[in-house]
Simulated assay, not measured.
Amino acid sequence: MELVLAMFGSFFIGTLLLCVALYVISSLSFVKVFKKLGYQSPGFGWIPIFNIFVLATIVSTGTTKVKVLGAFELDTTIYRFLWLLPIVIGFIPGSFGTLLSIAFTILYYGDMYSRVYASIDNTSVEEQTAIGAVSGFISIIFVFKALSANDDLVQLRYRADDVH
């Protein structure tokens, strides 16, 4: 019995340490991106979920309509709160809700990440759409790109078909 408790305790501590490490690394990534994009409160990168809202606000600043991954157009206010959609969809019972939620998350994060990458790499958002979409699914790409970037301020890039 003691062996089972020791194994459970070790697993719990290991999982907790992994979660803390992932939180710290992702938060540092958001803080760095917020600084690079000239956001006045980069410390918001440490607040889970709110950091997604802040990133959406930053990448949609100066537009009235945003073209998500070049596919569909949204009002800027809706775009900034679109992170709520996967959460709501996740309540649909069965695997359909889960798959739909994952798909919307990939699209939304992918669009934001492609805008960040274009700004960091000084390219067009359209050129960064593919890596942005992949990053929506494999977020460690965002972490590597953010943390490996220099500390210089960059100009925010928009899609050619965003409405200003």
Rank of each mutant, 00 (worst) to 15 (best):
Ser41Leu: 10
Ile120Leu: 15
Ile25Phe: 13
Ala118Ser: 13
Ala160Asn: 13
Phe81Leu: 15
Tyr158Asn: 08
Ile141Asp: 05
Ile131Trp: 08
Gln128Glu: 15
Lys32Trp: 06
Gly62Lys: 08
Asp151Asn: 15
Pro48Leu: 13
Phe53Asn: 03
Asp121Cys: 01
Leu74Asn: 08
Trp83Leu: 14
Phe72Asp: 07
Val154Asp: 05
Asp152Pro: 00
Asn150Thr: 14
Val143Gly: 01
Pro86Ala: 08
Lys65Leu: 07
Phe44Gln: 11
Ile58Gly: 00
Val163Glu: 14
Ser139Phe: 09
Met112Ile: 11
Leu22His: 01
Val31Trp: 13
Glu73Asn: 12
Ser124Ala: 09
Lys36Tyr: 01
Phe137Arg: 00
Val66Asn: 02
Val163Thr: 14
Val68Asp: 05
Ile92Gly: 04
Arg115Gly: 02
Ile106Lys: 02
Asp162Trp: 08
Thr63Met: 11
Ala21Asn: 07
Leu74Tyr: 08
Phe96Trp: 10
His164Trp: 06
Gly9Ala: 14
Ser139His: 03
Leu100Trp: 06
Val88Arg: 00
Val33Trp: 04
Phe12Gly: 02
Lys35Glu: 10
Ser124Trp: 05
Thr63Trp: 01
Ile52Phe: 12
Gly43Arg: 02
Gly97Trp: 03
Trp83Pro: 06
Phe104Met: 12
Met7Arg: 10
Phe50Ser: 07
Thr129Lys: 14
Ala160Trp: 01
Ala21Cys: 13
Asp162Glu: 11
Ala103Arg: 00
Val31Ile: 15
Leu22Phe: 14
Tyr79Trp: 15
Lys145Met: 13
Lys35Arg: 15
Phe91Ser: 12
Ile140Pro: 00
Lys65Glu: 15
Tyr39Glu: 04
Lys65His: 15
Gly43Trp: 12
Ser114His: 06
Gly62Ile: 14
Gly43Phe: 09
Leu156Arg: 10
Met112Pro: 01
Ile138Asn: 02
Ala130Phe: 10
Val163Phe: 02
Val24Pro: 05
Leu22Pro: 00
Ala130Leu: 13
Thr57Cys: 06
Leu22Asn: 10
Gly14Val: 12
Lys65Asp: 14
Tyr117Asp: 03
Ile87Thr: 06
Ile120Gln: 05
Ser29Cys: 06
Tyr108Met: 10
Leu17Met: 14
Ala103Pro: 01
Thr64Gly: 13
Val33Thr: 09
Gly62His: 12
Thr129Gly: 00
Asp121Ser: 09
Leu74Val: 13
Val33Glu: 01
Leu156Cys: 09
Ser95Gly: 02
Val88His: 00
Val143Gln: 08
Ile89Pro: 01
Lys145Thr: 11
Pro86Leu: 09
Lys32Pro: 04
Ala71Tyr: 05
Tyr158Ser: 02
Asp161Gln: 14
Glu126Gln: 11
Gly97Leu: 09
Ser135Pro: 04
Thr57Tyr: 15
Glu126Val: 04
Ala160Pro: 01
Gln128Ser: 07
Asp161Cys: 06
Asn122Leu: 06
Phe44Cys: 07
Asp121Thr: 04
Gly62Arg: 09
Ser29Pro: 05
Gly14Ile: 11
Ile52Leu: 14
Phe11Arg: 08
Pro48His: 10
Glu73Pro: 04
Ser119Gly: 08
Phe96Tyr: 09
Val33His: 04
Phe34Cys: 07
